[in-house]
Design a binder for these strands. Structure first.
Length: 573
RNA sequence: CGGGGUGUAGCUCAGCCUGGUAGAGCACCACGUUCGGGACGUGGGGGUCGUGAGUUCAAAUCUCGCCACCCCGACCA
């Protein structure tokens, strides 16, 4: 490709809307252009990268024996009614209506369509297991699209679905897919980690996320420093400590605390160690409960994990905090003065809270706290549960090592759906026993679009992008110095360009009549891995200059046999 | 949806407080000088100042409504 025939438009300045480095660089390179919130055009440059990612994903899936198909982006509401998701999926589902007044949605995912396809195509257990996949445009009407293509509303996704005669077969495919995913992300040149995850709105049982590790990631990952345990921190369980609370050492006492309504104020004004304080959070009770509210106790320096809390039957799901007025009506004190002693509503304490001694908490009377509280002596020992979010330094749930934290960008997610969809849609096959069996399903997603952004997050420097070679838009760039003034330079460059093309190399030849500095800056910005510079200087000594994008020094390659030298570099890196 | 912010040339922004001729840098076009790390000069094209109403002799500027976009939270590949 010659730059004269390639739409390249780079900018020196960073557009104001871009917050993170990948978004900034994608805009500065001219890889994407925003049409409207969360919806982007991919320019020829950006599309080359997107296609590379897509190609690698497709290649590995094909090798694993999964079959590609292509499902419609627009889906009829009837299918979604069958699974109940027409209502349940919520506002993320973009609903549209045709001229006859029939309802459709723009597909955010394809469980319904694939299940419909399979229930009419597959009749016998002998055809199972079977896995289909597609690479296709999805639309999710995100509440807040963000970070360019990292969280866009319209995006390209690889989604795969597997169907099985029994759970054992599903489990087998699931772990095969786990390996395929690992191969894909390795081949893409990404630093990643797989973690145990919550299955979220898609539903189902077992689930793993694949995260590209990057500081700008939106997810927090907890992992053990001594084992391969890793999980999304929203899910990381915390073990109950085996040792109970220490013997009481302090007198129980009531203290007037008119200026302490937060944990911070309590700690600063009264010298209570923060790890001897507890927060009392009042939330709505679950449907079957007799009380209206439940009090959740968390150590003062910890945060409530809402996912864990709402899984408790005592707690309403979704979690709903009581308002200040509700708290005052039920307890007779404001939210800044609550505690477990003398509380009239059910109490659930975090495991850690149950192990405290001589701690401080509100007195359920405005402007008063109790100090030196001890379980059993001053207040009944409460029910306990795992309520808080894990933090760095906690013991790993597998008992091996302590937890570290990292930030990640979720680029893949695999689920064992079980029969949630196949049952709702009556997707059955005949088994060996001659009876109908509901097919357990797995589903497996990769965010193709997001991978491009994640790869940039992980591979950039002050000059621009440093693409991993497998997904670079071009492998090599040929830069002639002042070609207009020099026949020799122009001829040598044209010749090398032709040879590289002939050899099947993806080469960009910068034939624009530009000052060298501009070319260098442009090519470093767009991150082409290999650069060959041709100038009078080098030609005089029979050499070309070569530089790898991540290096800071040039090396020379002899003009004679330059093609072979370059091919060797491509193979080596 | 709640909270905060911004809308002026393709991009980055000034001008608004204190109403009166719409600006700069980058980008773009032409010519010339330059030319191995984002050159310089001269000339030029380009804006219904987000939008609608109001106040006023006069609105980018003041007032009100609306819209869009961005940032912080819950959601997700």
């Amino acid at each position: 490709m010659k730059t004269s025939n390639f739409h390249l438009f780079t900018t020196r300045e960073t557009p104001a809307e871009a917050e993170i480095v990948s978004h900034q660089l994608m805009l500065r390179c001219g890889m994407i252009r925003k049409l409207t919130s969360g919806i982007y055009t991919w320019t020829p440059l950006g599309l080359r990268v997107l296609r590379k990612v897509e190609g690698i994903v497709r290649d590995e899936l094909d090798k694993a024996g999964y079959q590609e198909l292509l499902m419609p982006a627009v889906q009829p509401s009837e299918l979604w009614q069958e699974t109940g998701r027409w209502e349940k999926f919520g506002a993320q589902l973009l609903k549209i209506r045709d001229r006859a007044g029939r309802d459709y949605c723009f597909g955010p995912t394809h469980e319904e369509v694939i299940t419909d396809f399979v229930r009419s195509e597959i009749r016998s257990y002998k055809q199972l297991p079977i896995t289909f996949y597609q690479i296709q445009t999805k639309f999710r009407d995100e509440i807040r699209p963000r970070f360019g293509v990292m969280r866009s509303r319209e995006f390209l996704m690889k989604d795969a679905y597997s169907f099985h005669i029994d759970h054992a077969s599903l489990d087998k495919t699931y772990w095969e897919m786990y390996e395929v995913y690992s191969r894909i992300f390795t081949r893409l040149g990404l630093g990643f980690r797989s973690v145990e995850a919550d299955s979220g709105a898609i539903g189902g049982n077992k689930s793993h996320e694949f995260h590209v590790l990057a500081d700008s990631g939106e997810d927090q990952i907890a992992f053990s420093d001594q084992s391969d345990y890793a999980s999304n921190v929203e899910l990381t369980p915390i073990k109950q400590e085996e040792t109970g609370p220490a013997e009481p050492a302090e007198e129980f006492r009531t203290v007037d605390t008119p200026d302490a309504h937060t944990i911070d104020e309590l700690v600063n004004a009264y010298g209570v160690p923060v790890e001897k304080t507890i927060k009392t959070l009042i939330v709505h009770a679950g449907e079957e409960q007799t009380a209206d509210f439940v009090a959740l106790l968390i150590r003062g320096d910890r945060t409530l994990n809402t996912l864990k809390a709402e899984k408790l039957e005592e707690v309403a799901s979704p979690l709903l905090f009581a308002t200040d007025k509700e708290i005052r009506d039920a307890i007779g004190a404001g939210p800044g003065s609550l505690g477990p002693v003398g509380l009239s509503i059910p109490v659930i304490a975090d495991y850690e809270v149950a192990c405290l001694s001589d701690f401080a908490a509100g007195a359920n009377t405005d402007d008063q706290h109790f100090f030196g509280i001890n379980w059993g002596r001053d207040v009944e020992v409460p029910a306990t549960a795992d309520l808080r979010t894990a933090v760095e330094g906690d013991i790993s749930p597998d008992g091996k090592g302590i937890l570290q934290m990292a930030r990640g960008i979720e680029v893949g997610h695999i689920f064992q759906l079980g029969t949630a969809y196949s049952e709702a849609m009556n997707a059955v096959v005949l088994g060996e026993d001659g009876k109908s069996h509901v097919m357990p399903m797995g589903c497996y997603g990769i965010g193709i679009t997001r991978i491009v952004a994640a790869a940039i997050e992980q591979n950039n420097d002050e000059s621009g992008i440093c693409w991993p070679e497998p997904i670079a838009p071009f492998q090599v760039v040929v830069l002639p110095m002042n070609a207009k003034k020099s026949h020799r330079v122009r001829e040598a460059a044209e010749k090398l360009y032709a040879e590289l093309l002939e050899a099947g190399v993806e080469v960009l030849y910068d034939d624009r009549d530009l000052r060298p500095g501009v070319m260098f800056k442009d090519m470093e910005l767009i991150g082409i891995p290999h650069r060959v510079v041709i100038g009078e200087r080098g030609l005089d000594s029979g050499a070309l200059e070569y530089r790898y994008r991540r290096d800071s020094e040039n090396s020379e390659i002899p003009l004679d046999g330059a093609l072979d030298s370059i091919l060797k570099k491509l193979g080596n890196k």
